[in-house]
């Protein structure tokens, strides 16, 4: 029975070889783009991971805050933000940092400057951007940068990943649509034959089987083509990325296997969906 269905399905494909080849290529292109997109998404994942660490934001308070006032302000801030961690940067540490950046200040800072330095806090918060709200406090002179380069890159990478995922979903939808249209057209082209088959007692699996096969064969071929093309494409892109010192783009085996499986299952699903819809539309009375 399966051999018969495969032979009938192949027969449907052979009736229109150019259209069948076109369908295979179109599916392969969609799946290859999907495969490369996913490879790129996997490639930027480490950048995403690097941007999730906590960031300490520098908060510079007004100079000459007396000890009692400073402590009171700090206690109030800690109470208002229990999930933040506050650390007062010791004056000598601040002086050392300034000295590293501006060597000509070292002498001044060593002699008397430390006493002139305003108090500096390091605030570590789950959402560093929220630290900016402290700027509203009259005791605060300035709030330092709330993002690091990693966070900025991660934010960009996250957007790229979302975009790439959307593109992949769209490409899969296109593959589904292509297969669905193919089966739909074949059903219309063979509508009379299907009606005759029903009249002479053919069961639904016998009628639908060849159409499922005619969608699955180009799908499987497209999946294999897409896996090969994705592997080649990732290799070519890797040559570019490694040239500029970035890691290689990889197409892991699971991704390639997934492309083959998708190539088979997406058109099969589309065909099953279209056939079920078609069967609902044509009942015995319409024969």
């Amino acid at each position: 029975m399966i051999r018969h269905l495969v032979a009938e399905g192949m027969g449907l494909l052979k009736e229109r070889p150019l259209v069948s080849a076109g369908l295979t290529v179109a599916l392969a292109v969609a799946l290859t783009l999907g495969g490369l997109t996913l490879s790129a998404a996997l490639w930027i994942r480490p950048i995403l991971a690097s941007g999730t660490g906590e960031v300490a934001v520098a908060v510079l308070l007004r100079p000459h805050l007396e000890g009692g006032v400073f402590d009171q302000w700090l206690a109030t801030a800690e109470k208002a933000h229990p999930d933040w961690r506050f650390r007062r940067v010791p004056p000598d540490e601040l002086a050392a940092s300034l000295g590293e950046r501006f060597p000509y200040l070292r002498k001044l800072l060593a002699e008397e400057g430390q006493a002139l330095l305003p108090p500096l806090l390091e605030v570590t918060a789950p959402d560093p951007a929220a630290v900016r709200t402290l700027e509203a406090s009259p005791a605060v002179l300035a709030v330092g940068p709330v993002a690091t380069i990693h966070r900025t890159l991660a934010s960009i990478a996250r957007r790229i990943e979302a975009g790439l995922t959307a593109i992949t979903v769209a490409l899969v939808a296109i593959a589904f649509l292509l297969a669905s249209i193919w089966v739909h057209l074949e059903l219309y082209r063979h509508a009379d034959e299907i009606a005759i088959m029903r009249l002479v007692g053919a069961t639904e699996p016998a009628i639908r089987g060849p159409y499922l096969v005619s969608a699955a064969i180009p799908g499987l071929a497209a999946g294999l083509l897409a896996a090969a093309a994705t592997r080649a494409g990732a290799g070519w892109l890797s040559r570019l990325t490694t040239t500029v010192g970035l890691p290689a783009i990889e197409a892991p085996g699971t991704l390639l296997a997934g492309l083959v499986a998708f190539g088979l299952l997406v058109p099969l699903g589309a065909a099953a969906f279209t056939l079920a819809r078609h069967a609902r539309l044509t009942d015995a009375a319409s024969l």
Binding site: R198, L199, V200, G201, A202, E204, D283, A284
Partner: peptide, 13 residues
Amino acid sequence: HRELPRLRRSLGV
């Protein structure tokens, strides 16, 4: 619909 093939296979039309 599911039973139609059984009927039609029992007939010669």
